[in-house]
Amino acid sequence: MAGTGSGSLPRYIAQRVLLVIPMIWVILTLVFVVLRVAPGDPISAAVGGKLDADALAQRREALGLNRPMIAQYWDYLSSVAHLDFGTTFSDNQPVLRVIRDNGGATLSLTMAAFAIALLVGIPLGLVAGRYRDSIGDVVIRLFGILTYAAPIFFVGFLLQVYVAQPLGLPTGGASSPMTAFLVTPRTHILLIDVFLSGNSDAILDVLKHLLLPAVTLGLLICGVFIRLVRVNILQTMQADYVEAAEARGISRGKVTRHHALRNALVPVVTVIGLQFAMLLGGAVLTESTFNWPGLGQKLVDYINERDYGAVQGIVTIFAIAVVVVSVVVDVVNALIDPRVRY
């Protein structure tokens, strides 16, 4: 029996890793097809006012857009397999450079937002489950519903008007111009670069700029964690081992913290991959609302310019990131909950 159980984990991990290939292939195909069936000429839309007809024709030929669709599709798959995500049409630079220069800001925002969602959602879910049907439970559930349902740009606007101005917090950008001038870019992740610089004023400035966008995006998914933790706390508190612990004289609060909460967090780990996808989607709106210099803001700019070379590359990166995170979450979930291996 022990050998069967130990062998199930490597087999499960291998199955999840192998599933990445068809998942990514389907995503790449959808991105390619959706962008190609959009009406209009992307080259004319991107640089039509800057080049004459001959130059536009040469640009289309250089980018391979005059080739048969199946040939373009094969070139696209081959390029992605070699980690080449194409070139932007509007400013003619590699998409990987755009990702390198702007991806750090999006990564900082999503990680900070995710931390806020966990720090807010898990304790509130615990309190709501612990004091079921109380006034606090009703208020917390209402808060979770509102944060999940409220449009993210509207929440950002409210924070800018009613929080940023009274507290003197910045309402846009990732840092002040002076901080950007003083800090040497080493990792292309500003939050890490300012800590490496050791400049306390620059660190405080970057954290101030990060606070409101991270809170806005974090509120988007904290309601999911509130509901998950609450429901699973209620289910776990009815388990036999919880009743046995209470019968031995252990206080209900201690049983909730040390026994029920641990099991209630298993479903939270399960949905982290899905919430990561929601975070990336929310990052697009959050970055636009706060003029945050990340991939979401660049994606909106390129969409407005009809630059589907850039859109295709950035969306592909987002999709691959979501798939990889989902697989990692599945593996971690299998490690902490052996039931999912079978």
Rank of each mutant, 00 (worst) to 15 (best):
T87A: 06
G282N: 12
G281Y: 01
V163Y: 07
P68Q: 04
V331K: 02
W74V: 13
V324R: 07
P94S: 07
G125D: 07
F32C: 04
E305W: 02
L335Q: 14
V327L: 13
K208Y: 10
V242H: 03
Y342E: 14
F154L: 05
A180S: 05
T187D: 03
A113I: 00
A14T: 12
I233P: 11
Y73L: 05
D91K: 15
A214T: 01
V183N: 06
D330L: 14
L28M: 13
S108D: 02
L299Y: 00
V340I: 14
I189R: 15
F32V: 01
R341A: 08
I314V: 07
V80R: 01
L159P: 08
L295G: 04
L96M: 13
S8E: 08
G249S: 13
L299D: 00
P10L: 03
A45P: 03
A164L: 01
L211D: 00
A112R: 00
A14N: 10
T110A: 06
T236L: 14
A244H: 09
L190T: 13
H188D: 12
M69G: 06
D41C: 11
V269G: 15
L63R: 13
G49P: 04
M69F: 09
P42S: 15
N232R: 06
T179D: 10
G223P: 08
Q93K: 13
V183Y: 09
T289R: 00
E287T: 06
G5V: 13
V284R: 02
L83N: 05
N92F: 07
V20C: 13
V269K: 10
I27S: 12
D75S: 10
G49L: 10
V340W: 05
V231F: 09
N92A: 11
T184G: 14
G7R: 13
L126C: 10
L109Y: 03
N102W: 08
V322D: 08
V268S: 13
T171V: 15
T184R: 14
L30D: 06
G253D: 02
I27Y: 09
G104H: 05
A310W: 06
I272E: 04
G7K: 01
T110I: 10
E305K: 15
A245K: 15
G223F: 00
V322C: 09
V215H: 01
D133T: 13
G313V: 02
A277H: 02
S6P: 14
T184S: 10
A117M: 03
Y131H: 11
I320K: 11
A283L: 12
Q165H: 04
G313Y: 00
I203H: 02
G7H: 07
A2R: 09
T87I: 10
A117H: 01
V269I: 09
C222D: 11
T184W: 03
G3A: 15
A62M: 04
I140T: 07
L261W: 06
A245I: 15
V215D: 06
G121V: 02
F181S: 08
R339I: 05
R186E: 13
A112F: 07
